[in-house]
Design a protein around this nucleic acid. Structure first.
Length: 591
RNA sequence: GACUUGGUAGCUCAGCUGGAUAGAGCAUCAGCCUUCUAAGCUGAGGGUCAUUGGUUCGAAUCCAAUCCAGGUCACCA
């Protein structure tokens, strides 16, 4: 049980016995005591004044006395300052916490809870390479999966590959028109980048043709739909759904190029999936479900043959679910997939890590699924995250301002190499060990950077300033870990000794932080917010570093203090490692 | 226009289920390596929490209005 819960229970008990009324833990607030005051945790008394009819001072005295008298193992002293009851926790409480957990690498995690949850993330389109925004998505999805596992869920990571549809046909058409048979091999280009170039070429050509049509007097909107290249693309989509052999063959080949490229990127950044779905397989199920929905009158058909759902009663619009030419749109296959996920995994929760630009889409999806009676409809949860922007605003592929994922990873790794070489602390490492270290630090920095801010909020990335390696960063946490490991390699912990010593300020501060870890994981899981973990492990590392600077571990005043500090160091290193793992990042033993 | 999200230090962000003098990191300035890894530690300066009203003993936090910025409202995904 967390210290805060213990405190709440103790306070409720004291209040009930003192004032003969029934209180709950919601009637008051418990905070960490501000550093400038004496004490560890604080009860805010203001909200209790009315019900008790006491002055802040009187209430504080009575409650403080009762708490200290009745909980001698928990409290040693109290003081009252302007309506705040500051409580000092016994050193023994912190020592017991340490004794029980210092060697437990699972500290903070929960036992299995029997619930199954699917986390869908990454979900790339096979028409262009991954960029910075995808990295945020990938890191978020992976981290959320880790956090949920730590809280006892059985987690399935899934990925829906958007491998078909009009956007894929665009790069295919452009390849036919402009490539002259070129391939990734022939041009020595990574497959996803190669195909991405043709997607850009499509847009250039489309723009050119629109301009031509506009010059003949058409409106921009008309022109968009009537360009030759767009008409050819639409035809290709129909041919694809009809299974036309040469279209299928080109499609398969170009996708295989992209997958080869994605595999490299995923392996590099450490994303993996328990199940990969392909839209080319799921869209048919979606179409079937649309047919079922028509039979149930959830959907209706317009005169031109297109199929719609009317969501105006729910405050939304009419939404197309099948085009007039019978081809499916984005949402069609999503409806099918929602069903399929449930059928295959019987999941209790279904999380979709998708950008906030699709908030409306996801709202519609859930509503449609509910109306259709899809089993897992209520379990659908959109983990909506904000876009990664540049100082100049949104990334735009047409203006060439997109930060490519592979480039950024490469840059982070070379930056970590440069820093490491400058510091010259690992000159005895083998070449392989160095490569691994550079990657650990570079990726650690990048993952931490993208996960340390609230997922819901958009964030700004400045490519001009490389991601930092000092302060509130992954390398800071990694460095703290490596320093601890350096000590633990040299010293041995004697578990036969039971420590009972009074705690110095720096020692207690670390233990207070240590105690919070389990609660922080639960909070992060509840909010699906890895930034809670990042902020916490940074604070823990910072607190430890102050302790480390102030007090010697190896040369402590006496053997008991030395054992105490070794254990504090050990549990800190375990938490830093676990915490980084929850972010999908590693820690190096040396750096 | 409708709906929606946000606006906190020069920059990037915490804090938002109301509580003590609003916090970190970066950047700036001043200190600390003959002692466990200085990717570190200590300190200083830096704020009209967008604006205006309201609720309250108490508001960055809740409510309303306004201003500013982003997103969505496609037979794109």
């Amino acid at each position: 049980m967390s210290i805060v819960k213990s405190l709440q229970e103790a306070v409720v008990k004291s209040l009930n016995s003192l004032y003969n009324t029934t209180f709950t833990e919601k009637d008051f607030q418990i905070n960490l005591t501000k550093p400038e005051f004496e004490g560890d945790y604080t009860v805010v008394l203001f909200s209790l004044l009315k019900t008790t009819g006491k002055s802040p001072d009187a209430l504080g005295q009575e409650l403080g006395n009762d708490l200290v008298n009745n909980n001698p193992t928990l409290f040693t002293a109290f003081n009252i300052i302007k309506g705040f009851l500051n409580l000092t926790i016994t050193d023994n409480f912190w020592l017991q916490l340490l004794h029980k957990n210092y060697n437990d690498i699972c500290y903070g995690t929960q036992p299995l809870n029997g619930k199954k949850v699917m986390v869908e993330y990454s979900s790339p389109n096979t028409n262009k390479p991954l960029h910075l925004g995808h990295l945020r998505n990938n890191f978020l999805g992976f981290s959320v999966a880790q956090i949920l596992k730590a809280c006892g869920y059985e987690v399935f990571k899934s990925c829906i590959v958007n491998d078909r549809g009009i956007h894929i046909c665009k790069s295919m058409i452009a390849w036919q028109l402009f490539a002259k048979g070129a391939t990734p091999q022939s041009t020595n280009t990574k497959g996803d980048h190669f195909v991405g170039e043709y997607y850009v070429k499509f847009n250039d050509e489309q723009k050119r043709q629109i301009a031509e049509l506009v010059a003949t007097g058409k409106t921009e909107k008309e022109a968009e739909k009537q360009t030759q290249i767009m008409l050819a693309t639409q035809q290709m989509l129909q041919d694809w759904e009809a299974g036309k052999p040469e279209v299928m063959q080109l499609w398969k080949e170009m996708n295989s190029w992209v997958y080869a490229g994605f595999d490299v990127t995923y392996k590099n950044i450490g994303s993996d999936f328990d199940k990969t779905y392909y839209e080319s397989n799921t869209y048919l199920l979606g179409k079937e479900i649309v047919q079922l929905g028509l039979n149930k009158n959830v959907f209706y058909k317009k005169d031109d043959g297109s199929v719609w759902i009317d969501l105006t009663a729910d405050g939304l619009d009419e939404k197309l679910v099948l085009r007039k030419d019978g081809t499916s749109v984005y949402i069609t296959q999503d409806i099918g997939l929602a069903q399929q996920k449930y059928d295959e995994y019987k999941i209790d929760e279904s999380i979709y890590v998708i950008g906030d630009e699709q908030n409306y889409h996801m709202k519609v999806l859930k509503l449609i699924a509910q109306k259709l009676g899809v089993s897992s409809a209520n379990a659908i949860y959109h983990l909506s995250y904000g876009m990664v922007e540049l100082p100049s605003g949104k990334m735009k592929s047409r203006e060439g301002t997109v930060v490519d994922a592979d480039d950024l990873v490469e840059e982070m790794i070379s930056t970590s190499k440069r820093h490491t070489e400058e510091l010259g602390k690992v000159k005895d490492f083998t070449a392989d060990e160095l490569v691994h270290l550079y990657k650990t630090i570079g990726l650690g920095a990048m993952k931490f950077y993208l996960l340390r801010v609230d997922p819901k909020k958009k964030m700004v990335f400045n490519p001009e300033e490389s991601i930092d390696f000092h302060g509130f960063t992954g390398p800071f946490v990694q460095y703290t870990y490596a320093r601890i490991k350096s000590i633990l390699r040299k010293e041995t912990i004697d578990i036969s000794k039971l420590i009972s010593t009074s705690l110095l300020k720096n020692e207690k501060e670390v233990l207070v932080a240590v105690e919070q870890f389990p609660a922080v994981i639960l909070e992060a899981a509840k909010e699906l917010d890895p930034s809670k973990i990042a902020i916490y492990i940074f604070n823990l590392a910072k607190t430890f570093n102050s302790f480390y600077a102030e007090l010697s571990i190896a040369k402590a005043e006496n053997e008991e203090k030395k054992q105490l500090r070794l254990q504090i160091a050990m549990i800190t290193s375990n938490i830093l490692k676990s915490g980084m793992q929850l972010l999908g990042a590693e820690v190096p033993e040396r750096m």
